[in-house]
Design a protein around this nucleic acid. Structure first.
Lengths: 208, 208
DNA sequence: GTCTATAAATGGATAGAC
DNA sequence: GTCTATCCATTTATAGAC
């Protein structure tokens, strides 16, 4: 059972970080919650940052998996919907990172570079998908408009769950659905009339 | 000179909080920087939260002053531009609040309520200004579109400087200008053709 | 692998002299 | 108003027994 405790530490740390914020959870808290000794925890991980890096690794792999562009076929609005779901679910599951992102990145150069890469990938992804919608005739926007739109999608996706949290929204599914609707509202003005009407119908049902 | 040290503590605390993040600045750090004793600092303020509350008070008054709607005349795009400037400058000057907002609000019920009020006021403000642009014929959007637009403006304005900070943007003026351009891009699709062209010309010059 | 015990450092806060 | 001295609690991290 070599990796058993090691895994339990990660799982419990993630839960506590998400609930109480990374800076409010000490290694002692994590050990307490697991009913193991602090010494035992330090046998498995060098320090708190080591735990955070392992969690970041999982986050990174999951976000990389979520950020894909349909290959060899036209992009549809359903693709956007699905991808936003995957991205928001990932952010939710690792929301402690986003809640304290500037602090966490400011004390760890490696994570800073890796998060910058994720953001860049997210930006490129939003770009490619918007361009795909444009090429398939689903929407119509200039290059400059797609550029600005991709940036706004990225910022909104990155910080929406923080915003929802400040508003006291505790329900994961509701928060995510509202986030998706808001991102869709960014795209909506550029859609063909028929697509836009269809989207508004879907959104109204979805956000209720 | 009764209030002299009291004021210097606020000024120095604000500078340190903005530079290093509120959670990374202890009362000892503030006293050190001012070259006064920790005991002296505690003579002027009950505790660290007391200092934060006083800073929040100043932030609150400034943001309240920035969030106004032109009275008795039509709203123009220049009004939007000016107001975004005032709002972003205010957020910049108190960026420590936004950087750690969830943590700060989670441990202080009073600030939570007061920040919620500011957000609500910001939301109502964005709403009223968009409605004003609509009424003056500068833009054309449905009630649902204005609703979604106002929310997205609020989220973008609230978190843009965090996003810019992650990107390593250290220059206040550049960060703010880019933020304004991005907000304007949210509004752009709803503008009349002539207004939209005018805006794109202005934005291109502004963001350079 | 896990525990107990503990060191070393830091942060918040107060008492009492000046 | 300001300082010195100090206390208490917390956190990170390690040493050494089992």
């Amino acid at each position: 059972m070599s990796g058993k405790t090691r895994q339990r530490i990660l799982t419990t740390a993630l839960a506590l970080f998400n609930e109480q914020g990374e800076s409010n959870v000490s290694t002692n808290h994590i050990a307490d919650e697991l009913e193991i000794s602090p010494g035992n925890l330090y046998y498995h991980y060098r320090n708190k940052d080591d735990i955070i890096e392992q969690l970041f690794q999982r986050y990174e792999e999951r976000m990389d998996a979520a950020l894909t562009v349909p290959d060899g076929r036209a992009v549809t609005l359903e693709d956007v919907w699905l991808q936003l779901h995957l991205v928001f679910e990932c952010i939710w599951d690792y929301r402690f990172l986003y809640r304290d992102i500037i602090n966490i990145l400011s004390r760890n150069r490696s994570l800073r570079l890796r998060f910058a890469r994720i953001l860049k990938r997210g930006s490129g992804n939003a770009h490619a998908i918007m361009k795909g919608l444009n090429d398939s005739g689903t929407m119509r926007a200039s290059a400059a408009e797609i550029e600005g739109l991709a940036t706004n999608i990225l910022v909104l996706a990155t910080f929406w769950l923080n915003y929802a949290s400040i508003h006291g929204e505790k329900d994961e599914q509701r928060a995510i659905q509202q986030g998706i609707v808001q991102v869709m509202m960014l795209v909506s003005p550029f859609l063909r009339d028929s697509e836009r009407l269809h989207l508004h119908t879907l959104s109204a049902a979805y956000a209720s």
